[in-house]
C-alpha cells in the first residue's frame, strides 16, 4: 500500500467545525440551502412555464409596480432593523434587541398586509389559480403559488420573530437564537428580491 504519513493533516481537535461555527448555526445554514432550493425549484418551474407560454401578460400594466416597490422597500428595511437587533443581541443590549425585533415584526406584518391587499385587488379583477383575464392561463397559478409560498415563509418568520421577542423580553433569548432567527429573516427577504426581479420586473 502506498501510504504516506506526511499526507495526513495536523491532528483534528474535535468539536470544532471546519467552518468555525457551532452546530445550530451550521444546521440553520443547511436548512436555508435546502429551503432555498425549494424556491429555486418554483422559480425554475415558473421560468419553464413562461418560456413555453406563447404570450405572457405585461406586468407593468397589470401590477402597480410603485406599490410593489413599496412592499419591497418595507421588507428590505425590516432586514436592516433585524441586523440592528442581532448586533444589539451580541452586545447584550436587551432593550434595543426588543425594540428592533418588534420593528422587524411590524415590517413583516406590513408586508403581509400589503400582499393581502394586492391579492384582493387581483382576485377582484378575475385572477385566480385556474384563471387569468390577461392571457396566459398559467400566469395566475404561477403568481399565487410563488407569492403565496413566499408569503407563508414571511408569516412563519414573523411568528418566529415574535416568539424571539417574547423570549427576549423574558430574558430567555440567547444572542445566537436572535442571530438564527435573523438568518432566516434575511433569507426570506433575499428570496423576495429574486421573486420581485424575476416575476415583476423582467
Amino acid at each position: 500500500m502506498e501510504i504516506t504519513a506526511a499526507a495526513q493533516p495536523a491532528n483534528w481537535d474535535g468539536g470544532v467545525s471546519p467552518f468555525g461555527i457551532g452546530w445550530s448555526k451550521l444546521m440553520m445554514w443547511l436548512f436555508i440551502v435546502s429551503d432555498g432550493l425549494v424556491f429555486a425549484g418554483f422559480l425554475a418551474i415558473y421560468g419553464f412555464i413562461r418560456l413555453a407560454s406563447p404570450d405572457w401578460p405585461d406586468r407593468s400594466r397589470m401590477f402597480h409596480l410603485d406599490f410593489i416597490a413599496l412592499m419591497t422597500f418595507t421588507l428590505i428595511s425590516s432586514s436592516a432593523t433585524m441586523a440592528t437587533a442581532v448586533a444589539a443581541a451580541r452586545e447584550g443590549n436587551r432593550k434595543t434587541v426588543l425594540r428592533f425585533l418588534l420593528l422587524t415584526v411590524l415590517g413583516g406584518c406590513a408586508f403581509l398586509g400589503m400582499q393581502a391587499y394586492e391579492w384582493t385587488g387581483l382576485i377582484r379583477e378575475g385572477a385566480g389559480l385556474g384563471s387569468n383575464p390577461w392571457g396566459a392561463p398559467l400566469f395566475g397559478a404561477c403568481f399565487f403559488v410563488l407569492t403565496g409560498f413566499h408569503g407563508s415563509h414571511v408569516l412563519s418568520g414573523v411568528i418566529v420573530l415574535a416568539m424571539t421577542a417574547v423570549r427576549s423580553r423574558m430574558g430567555m433569548a440567547r444572542a445566537e437564537g436572535v442571530e438564527l432567527a435573523g438568518l432566516y429573516w434575511h433569507f426570506v427577504d433575499l428570496v423576495w428580491v429574486f421573486i420581485f426581479t424575476l416575476f415583476y420586473l423582467i
Binding site: N11, W12, G14, G15, S17, F19, G22, L26
Partner: peptide
Amino acid sequence: LDQRTKGM
C-alpha cells in the same frame, strides 16, 4: 461536520 472526536 461538527461532532467528530479528537483526531477524527
